[in-house]
């Protein structure tokens, strides 16, 4: 009796698969292609909406208004003003947020003390803080700075506290056994362990904080991106309003992609090290 052997096809290695995939297919299925596709989709949606609705300014009108603002010399002064207020507010939120988050993560007493204020802070929206700070501090730099700080600091605290609570028990026990001083434990064990949580907290601070700064400028006047956006809004010219929003959102996106992303990659370079 004879048997028929079905030939078994040898399985290909990942290297072979990689070599067989054409370059155009690799490019089309890359992460960068997905990002470009998302941007293009958003842009097409914007064009479509502006074509359908008269009160939605299209990209060309927005660019025209932005050029006008540049020509009037309004951009650098106002943008710089907002950036200063935003930067100081986020920096303060980061420093205070890390300190309070570490205390909440390490100490039961600290957690009990800060838990309620942080919860209240999380539940108050940026618009309420902007009203309050304008009432308290008037039309200067202080209202937008404090609004940015107050809206973003609870998010940094919550993220950092969560990270500190997650620090490896084994490494903490090792530090206890060797009597490692508290300051060194915070610097060499706790802070590096919570870097990811700090980064997530700062990201939140930036995303939430810019709402705060723009709203405080919107209501408090005294110059800045929020002030100029309101100026165009009051003039019933939505192209100018949108131009300022696009400018600031664009800046936040670039800041996130080219600064924060790289800082995070550098902080986690030890993860890329493998045997």
């Amino acid at each position: 009796m004879s048997t028929t052997m079905t030939p078994v096809k040898a399985r290909r290695s990942t290297t072979e698969k990689e070599q067989e995939t054409p370059a155009w297919k690799k490019r089309l299925t890359s992460d960068n292609a997905a990002r470009v596709a998302a941007l293009l989709s958003f842009f097409l949606f914007w064009v479509l909406m502006s074509a359908l609705f008269e009160r939605v300014p299209g990209p060309i009108e927005v660019v025209q208004r932005l050029v006008e603002e540049f020509q009037r010399g309004e951009v650098f002064g106002n943008f710089g003003m907002t950036l200063y207020r935003f930067g100081v507010g986020v920096a303060l939120a980061t420093v205070v947020g890390i300190a309070v988050g570490v205390i909440m993560g390490l100490s039961q007493l600290g957690r009990a003390f800060f838990e309620s204020p942080v919860l209240v802070g999380l539940s108050i929206p940026a618009i309420i803080w902007s009203f309050l700070t304008v009432m308290w501090f008037g039309f200067g730099d202080l209202s937008p700075i404090i609004t940015t700080f107050l809206t973003s600091v609870p998010f940094v605290i919550v993220n950092v506290a969560q990270g500190v609570r997650g620090v490896s028990r084994d490494l903490r026990d090792m530090s206890t056994t060797y009597n490692v001083p508290f300051s060194r434990r915070v610097r060499d064990l706790v802070l590096p362990a919570v870097t990811g949580y700090v980064a997530a907290g700062v990201r939140f601070a930036i995303i939430i904080g810019w709402n705060g700064v723009l709203l405080a400028e919107w209501f408090g006047g005294g110059g800045g991106v929020g002030y100029r956006a309101r100026w165009w809004y009051d003039a019933n010219r939505f192209g100018g309003f949108a131009a300022w929003v696009v400018l600031f959102v664009g800046f936040i996106v670039l800041l996130d992609r080219f600064v924060l992303d790289r800082v995070i990659q550098r902080a986690f370079r030890w993860r890329d090290a493998s045997a």
Binding site: M174, L189, T195
Partner: peptide, 13 residues
């Protein structure tokens, strides 16, 4: 005191 654990317990960073 010195302590050698079952696992190395080194700071990975």
């Amino acid at each position: 005191m010195g302590y050698v654990f079952q696992d190395p317990r080194l700071l990975p960073w």
